[in-house]
């Protein structure tokens, strides 16, 4: 199983990766410092038949291409695989939480930091079939 971490803060990205490995959430992790890098990689994998992620942990506030731009761009890629996006942010803005529910790929909204409990909840959400 492949997980993308899309996060501009290197400390936060490192800590999330460390937690994922420790909890054996998945076998492989790829980190991207903004939405643009993650999108480019996703697009390339989709076109060349490369490995597509199962899960994307997506930060919202990022330079160049932020989380919302990424979600819009992601929707425009016709990806056959069921990729599950979890929004991971420090934002407590109610509008942000509400807005994520309009994206079909987003299956959860998480506050930083990602800890054992958050990963357990993600695991549980992944097992529930997506309606």
């Amino acid at each position: 199983m492949l997980t993308y971490i899309v996060e501009d803060d290197p400390v936060a990205a490192y800590l999330a990766e460390l937690m994922i490995r420790k909890e054996q959430f998945c076998s492989e992790v790829q980190s991207y410092v903004n939405g643009q890098r993650a999108f480019d990689s996703l697009k390339e994998a989709n076109e060349t038949g490369g490995a597509l992620p199962d899960v994307i942990l997506l930060d919202l506030n990022m330079p160049l291409m932020d989380g919302w731009d990424f979600l819009d761009a992601f929707d425009s890629l016709a990806i056959a695989k069921d990729v599950c996006v979890f929004v991971v942010t420090s934002s407590i803005r109610p509008d942000d939480i509400e807005k994520t529910t309009h994206y079909k790929h987003v299956r959860g909204f998480f506050s930083k930091p990602i800890d054992e409990k958050a990963l357990k909840r993600m695991q549980h959400l992944l097992e529930v079939p997506n309606n």
Partner: peptide, 21 residues
């Protein structure tokens, strides 16, 4: 207020995790 909370929370999240580690 949202900006403040976001910016400070993102650092405090890192600090919490690092202190635990």
């Amino acid at each position: 207020a949202y900006i403040i909370s976001h910016n400070i929370r993102s650092h405090s999240a890192n600090l919490t995790s690092l202190a635990k580690l």
